[in-house]
Structure formats: structure tokens, C-alpha cells
Computed example of a mutant assay.
Amino acid sequence: MTGPGELPELRALYGTEPLPSLDTCDFFHVHVDERGSSVTFGFETARLPPHPEPQWAAGPYNTLRFWVEFTGVSGLRMAGIVAEPERGVRITAAAPDRLEVAVTGGRREISFSAEASRVAHTRVYLRGSL
């Protein structure tokens, strides 16, 4: 099981530098898979890792997207569907083999318990300015 805030796949990219805080990353995706009892969150950050994947050298980029999959999910609660820029993401160890996950905002909340978490996918791209 991955401890709260320590995702080995991100740790490999960032090395000894602090990982991006999930509270400051753009939270752009939620997928609930009831067949596999999993929930996947998508985040993106402009804080690029110092140890990029070799295939990322093919072109310019300024944004890292990563998807965190939580498996063995139980006790899923969701309220509201409005995307909110102001929200908090909390992952805490609830027991030796469980994580408590919560994303809360003014009008939205997602919470559940999970057995494990992992970074399921990473992608870099060049995000233009608005």
C-alpha cells in the first residue's frame, strides 16, 4: 500500500524534491469504476519533475498530467458536481491497510476509503497561455 502523499511513481520523477501538493494541482478528472471498485483522479501541474521520462524529450512541454487510481474502494460518498478551483485534497492512513481520501470544496465533496493508490498514467504537454 502507498502511504498518504507518497506515490512511488511521482517520487521517481521528482527524486528528493518535494512532490507537488495535490491541493495546488488542477483537479480535472474523476472516474468511478464500480466494476473494479476503483476511483481515479486526474491532476495537472506546471511544476515539472527534474527526472523526466526519456520519451518526453521528443518535444517541448510545460505541464505534467497524472492520474491517481485508488483501488479497493468502499464507502464512496459524492455530493455536487460543480468544478471548484478552491478545494482541498486529503489522503490519510486510516489503518495499516486503508487510506481515507477526501476532496472537499464549497459545493462538492468526494470521500471514500481505499486499499491502495498508484499513479496509473503520466503525460506531458505544452499548455498555452489564456
Rank of each mutant, 00 (worst) to 15 (best):
T2D: 09
G3E: 00
G5R: 11
G5E: 07
E6H: 13
E6T: 13
R11D: 06
G15N: 10
T16V: 09
T16G: 02
E17R: 14
P18F: 00
S21V: 07
D23Y: 05
D26Q: 11
D26I: 07
D26A: 10
F27L: 15
F28W: 08
V32T: 08
V32R: 00
V32P: 05
D33W: 03
E34D: 14
E34G: 02
S37T: 13
V39P: 01
V39W: 03
T40I: 09
F41T: 05
F43E: 08
F43P: 10
E44D: 13
A46Q: 05
R47Q: 11
L48Y: 06
L48V: 07
P49A: 00
P49I: 00
H51R: 14
H51K: 15
P52T: 05
E53A: 14
P54Y: 04
Q55S: 15
W56M: 01
A57W: 08
A58H: 15
N62Q: 08
T63G: 08
L64H: 05
R65C: 04
F66V: 05
G72N: 07
G72H: 05
V73F: 08
A83F: 09
A83R: 04
E84Y: 09
V89S: 03
R90V: 03
R90Y: 06
A93P: 02
A94F: 06
P96A: 06
P96R: 02
R98Q: 11
R98P: 00
L99W: 07
L99H: 13
V101A: 01
T104A: 09
G105Q: 08
G105E: 00
G106I: 02
R107V: 04
E109G: 13
I110M: 06
F112N: 08
A116V: 02
S117G: 10
R118I: 02
V119Y: 00
V119Q: 00
V119D: 04
A120C: 08
A120N: 00
A120R: 14
R123C: 01
Y125E: 06
L126W: 03
R127C: 02
